[in-house]
C-alpha cells in the first residue's frame, strides 16, 4: 500500500474517532484523536498530562463510550498497594470454607486407615482454597478479564508511590499479571489504558517510556466555543462567544489557578440559570467565584473586570 493511501485511510479513521467523540459530547482536536487511534492500534497506554480540568479523565470516559467498552477506573492515592489495585483474596469466605471443610472432613475421610491414607485422600481433592472463586479482582485485574477488552483509567498516577508505579510497568507492557497461587492471567483483548497525571510529582522515566505521551493544554477559543456548544447547548451564541473570550483573556493573567474548561462549563451553566443574554460587570463580579477558586486571584483581577467585560462584548 502506498504511503499516501495509508495516510488517507488513517486520517479517515481519526476523523471517525473525532466524530464519535463529538457524538458522545466530547469535543476533541485531531491531536487527541490521533493519540487514541495510535493507542488502540499499537496497544500502548497513553499518559495524559495537562493542567487540571482540561478533560483528561473525561477523555477516558469518552473513549469508553465511543468504543462501547466498560470503563474501569483506578484512582491513585498515596499508599495504594497491590491488594487494592490488583486482587485480594476473599478471606471471609475462605474462613467459612475452612469451617465447612472441618464439618465435612469426617465424612470425607470415612473409611481411611491411618494418617497416610487420609493425606492421600486429601490430595485427591482440588485445591479450592486458593482458586478463582475466592479471588476478588480489583480494577487492574478486572481490566484484564473483561471479555471484549475494557478501557482502563489509572487516574492521577502521580499521586501514587514510586513502588506502585514500578508495579504498573509489568501490567502495562505485557498486559498480564501473575498470581502465585493460580498462575498468570493474560488479557484476551488488550484494554485501552489511560494514565493521567497532574504533575505533582514527576512520573518516572521508565513509565513514560512505555507510554504515548499526550499533553492536553487549554483549548483555543474556537475549540472552547464548540465545547460549550456541546456541553451547555442552551447558551445563546452571542453569550457563548462573550464568555469564552472572557475566560480566554482571564487565562493570560498571572493567577494561582487558571480557570479550566470544566470551570468554563460550570460558568456557562450558571449564566444560563440566571437567564443572562449578555455579560455585564456586576454579573461577572457575582459569579467570578465559579471561575476563580482563590480569594487572592479574585482580588487580583477585580480591577480589570470592566475592561475585560468590555473587550469580551466587543469581541463577541
Amino acid at each position: 500500500m502506498s504511503d499516501k493511501v495509508k495516510s488517507g485511510a488513517v486520517q479517515a479513521e481519526i476523523e471517525l474517532i473525532k466524530d464519535g467523540f463529538e457524538a458522545g459530547g466530547y469535543v476533541a482536536n485531531t491531536h487527541i484523536a490521533t493519540a487514541v487511534f495510535l493507542a488502540k492500534a499499537l496497544d500502548k497506554p497513553i499518559l495524559v498530562e495537562g493542567p487540571p480540568g482540561v478533560g483528561k479523565t473525561e477523555l477516558a470516559k469518552a473513549t469508553a463510550s465511543y468504543l462501547g467498552r466498560e470503563l474501569i477506573r483506578l484512582q491513585c492515592y498515596e499508599g495504594l498497594d497491590e491488594a487494592k489495585a490488583l486482587y485480594e483474596w476473599k478471606y471471609g469466605k475462605q474462613l467459612l470454607y475452612t469451617q465447612v471443610l472441618k464439618d465435612k472432613l469426617a465424612d470425607l475421610m470415612a473409611g481411611t486407615n491411618g494418617i497416610d491414607e487420609a493425606m492421600e485422600r486429601l490430595h485427591t481433592f482440588d485445591d479450592t482454597f486458593f482458586s478463582p472463586e475466592f479471588l476478588e479482582p480489583r480494577p487492574l485485574l478486572k481490566a484484564l478479564q473483561v471479555p471484549d477488552g475494557g478501557v482502563l483509567l489509572v487516574d492521577e498516577v502521580d499521586k501514587s508511590d514510586q513502588e506502585f508505579e514500578a508495579f504498573l510497568l509489568e501490567i502495562l507492557s505485557d498486559f498480564q499479571v501473575s498470581i502465585p497461587e493460580i498462575g498468570t492471567i493474560k488479557a484476551d483483548v488488550k484494554p485501552v489504558v489511560f494514565l493521567t497525571s497532574n504533575n505533582t510529582r514527576e512520573v518516572g522515566d521508565a513509565l513514560k517510556r512505555r507510554c504515548l505521551h499526550l499533553y492536553i493544554s487549554f483549548p483555543d477559543q474556537k475549540l472552547e466555543m464548540r465545547i460549550i456548544e456541546k456541553r451547555v447547548p442552551g447558551v445563546p451564541a452571542s453569550l457563548r462567544s462573550q464568555l469564552v473570550t472572557f475566560v480566554q483573556e482571564l487565562r493570560t493573567k498571572t493567577i494561582k489557578k487558571l480557570p479550566a474548561v470544566s470551570e468554563t462549563i460550570d460558568w456557562a451553566r450558571a449564566l444560563l440559570l440566571l437567564h443572562t443574554d449578555e455579560l455585564d460587570e456586576t454579573l461577572v463580579r457575582n459569579t467570578l467565584n465559579l471561575l476563580l477558586k482563590f480569594e487572592d486571584d479574585i482580588e487580583s483581577v477585580e480591577n480589570e473586570i470592566p475592561g475585560m467585560v468590555r473587550r469580551a462584548r466587543e469581541g463577541g
Binding site: 500500500m1 502506498s2 504511503d3 499516501k4 493511501v5 495509508k6 495516510s7 488517507g8 488513517v10 486520517q11 481519526i14 485531531t30 491531536h31 490521533t34 493519540a35 495510535l38 492500534a41 499499537l42 497513553i46 499518559l47 498530562e49 513514560k208 517510556r209 507510554c211 504515548l212 505521551h213 499526550l214 499533553y215 493544554s217
Partner: peptide, 25 residues
Amino acid sequence: AADLVGFGDRTLLKDTLALSLAKTP
C-alpha cells in the same frame, strides 16, 4: 507508529511522532 500511519501526511506524522517521542511540555 510511523509505519502505521505512513509518511503521506505531514501533520499526522508530526502528531504521531510527538506522541511517542516527546514526553514533557
